Amino acid sequence: MSKDLRVNEEIRAREVRLINTDGEQLGILPVKEALRIAQDKGLDLVEVAPAAKPPVCRIIDYGKYRYEQSKREKEARKNQKIINVKEVKFRLGIEEHDFQVKAKNAAKFLKSGDKVKVTVMFRGREISHADLGKAICTKLANQLSDIAVVEKQPNVEGRNMTMILAPKQD
């Protein structure tokens, strides 16, 4: 945003709506007059709303303004939560204990705020038993229903069946 702002002599409009350092409007003035007021105060005239009729300009210290703008953008980037997709793989003949271990891992991923891609892998003729793969996905979804919602229902893609679980929003 701060990269395309016009400053001082770069402003091309004939008249501008001028805003003082404390945020009060000084009215619509010719650019030369607004520039003179800004220079008298030892500050810059910055066009903050070029699309307005007439364009809106503020009297501010441009260097300080750019610094604060970059700090705000950096803070916004820091506060963004990056959601990763973790994968948990199952096979049709999975034993109960192994299923519980993988379910516990999926729960850990969901609690840390990540999405979980559940993959049931089929080998050979196992693909004809897609209903058993769907049963595994449904069992996992039911077990994790208190902390997760099904974002994408189980469906077969090639030799795998995939389902995506997302953490529940409080």
Rank of each mutant, 00 (worst) to 15 (best):
S128Y: 14
I94M: 12
F99W: 04
A107V: 01
C137P: 08
V88P: 02
E96R: 07
I82T: 09
I83W: 03
R123D: 13
N142T: 07
T119R: 07
P154K: 05
T119W: 00
A135E: 15
T162G: 04
N84L: 13
M121G: 00
D98P: 00
N155R: 10
L132W: 11
A103H: 04
K81A: 04
Q153I: 06
K86W: 04
R159N: 14
N160Y: 09
V85R: 05
G124S: 08
T119C: 07
K117D: 08
R159Q: 11
D114L: 06
N160A: 08
K152Q: 15
G133T: 06
N84M: 10
F109D: 03
A135N: 15
E126K: 10
I59Y: 07
V85D: 01
P154Y: 09
L165N: 12
H97E: 15
V156T: 08
I127D: 00
E75T: 08
S70Q: 14
Y67I: 11
Y67R: 15
N79T: 09
I94K: 02
I83G: 03
D114Y: 13
N142C: 02
V116H: 05
N160V: 11
R123F: 14
N105G: 02
Y67P: 00
V118H: 05
N79Y: 10
E73C: 01
L144K: 01
Q69S: 12
A106L: 05
K117Q: 11
N105T: 10
H129K: 14
F109Y: 15
R91M: 09
K74E: 15
L140D: 04
E75M: 07
A107L: 03
N155I: 04
D146T: 14
I60R: 08
R72M: 09
I164Q: 13
F109T: 01
V156L: 15
A107I: 01
V101S: 00
K64L: 12
Q69R: 10
E68T: 09
G63K: 12
P154T: 09
R123Y: 11
A106K: 03
Q153D: 14
P154D: 13
V118P: 10
R125Q: 12
G93L: 02
M161G: 06
K81H: 11
F109E: 03
A141Y: 05
V101Q: 04
E87C: 01
D131R: 06
I127R: 06
A166V: 12
N84Y: 07
H97I: 15
I60C: 01
N84I: 08
L92Q: 02
F122S: 01
I147T: 06
L165H: 07
I147Y: 07
V156C: 03
K86L: 04
E126Q: 15
A76D: 11
K81N: 02
L144D: 08
N105K: 15
K117W: 01
A103P: 02
V120F: 06
F122G: 01
F90D: 00
Y65C: 03
I127G: 00
N142W: 05
Q143A: 13
A106C: 04
E87Y: 03
K64D: 07
V149G: 07
D131K: 06
R159P: 03
I136L: 14
S70V: 07
V116W: 10
C137V: 06
I164C: 06
A130K: 09
A135Q: 14
E151T: 02
R66T: 13
A141N: 08
E73T: 06
I82G: 00
A103Q: 12
I82K: 09
